[in-house]
Design a protein around this nucleic acid. Sequence first.
DNA 1: CTCCGTGCAAAAGGTTTGCACTGGT
DNA 2: ACCAGTGCAAACCTTTTGCACGGAG
Lengths: 150, 150
Amino acid sequence: MKQQPLVDEKIKAFENLCRERGLALTIQRRIILENLSSRYDHPTADQIYEAVKDQIRGVSRTTVYRVLETFVRLGVVAKVSNPHAKARFEADTVRHHHLICLDCNSVADCHDGRLDGIEVPTENCDGFEVRDFSIAITGLCSSCRREKTL
Amino acid sequence: MKQQPLVDEKIKAFENLCRERGLALTIQRRIILENLSSRYDHPTADQIYEAVKDQIRGVSRTTVYRVLETFVRLGVVAKVSNPHAKARFEADTVRHHHLICLDCNSVADCHDGRLDGIEVPTENCDGFEVRDFSIAITGLCSSCRREKTL
DNA sequence: CTCCGTGCAAAAGGTTTGCACTGGT
DNA sequence: ACCAGTGCAAACCTTTTGCACGGAG
């Protein structure tokens, strides 16, 4: 689990954002953000639903989808690109990259300073205005690698 | 449109692959590959279906999905990661990167030599075995940018 | 001639939408 | 008290699957 302080910060920042914009700080939003902030994996909407349904009496899958969509729109969480159908989410908004396993489809984070300095062509590509970038590294995660050699 | 020679090469390579592996070179496979190889965008399975259904009498959506899956398995085309639900495909197998528009969700290619030299940490990340990588650059494409300033 | 590949229809997810109610501000 | 946010159910859309037929090797 991530350090509690990080989760608290995230929640606090979101509380402020809600106040600023007059958004309702509902139990659903709070617990979903709390859950997503405290995990390392990149859960799908459904996995988040499974995780929070015991904490929020009678929460619906629909709400999870809507809350996540709101978070994405606010820039509080990110939708992770991956080559599979399901959308995956993460609360880490610091620039980092993703290790995507070709075998088990898991998505792991990779914070590596060496990759931060990469210069993305800002002007060259047909007038495209660069906002951010992320590297998707595909390969085999350690556990799938282990299985292969067995 | 891409230069015709590129399409021809792609088809020829696929013909050889079929011969080698004893795969059937059906009209469906040929026309779908021809279509995907000749376009610059990153069409969804459905967009390809729309494009080829007039050329292949009575083709079914199912076939398009299955043919694309076959191509991906053979490494002839790639499934592009993007932060939206639908899978997108491309026939360009040379390493390159993607410009993803936050506004219109379009995916454009970016071949930039400066990005080819990037050293991805091969050993650091928890025993992950790196196979390949691709950079997803998010921002605004030129036409969406133009609209915004209007 | 033999199967692989296809078409059809139906199922299986994942995600979105309309509407009425409820809880946060 | 007002209205954004939620729950429910149903719709929607993409993708997958089972089965029988037909065409490529």
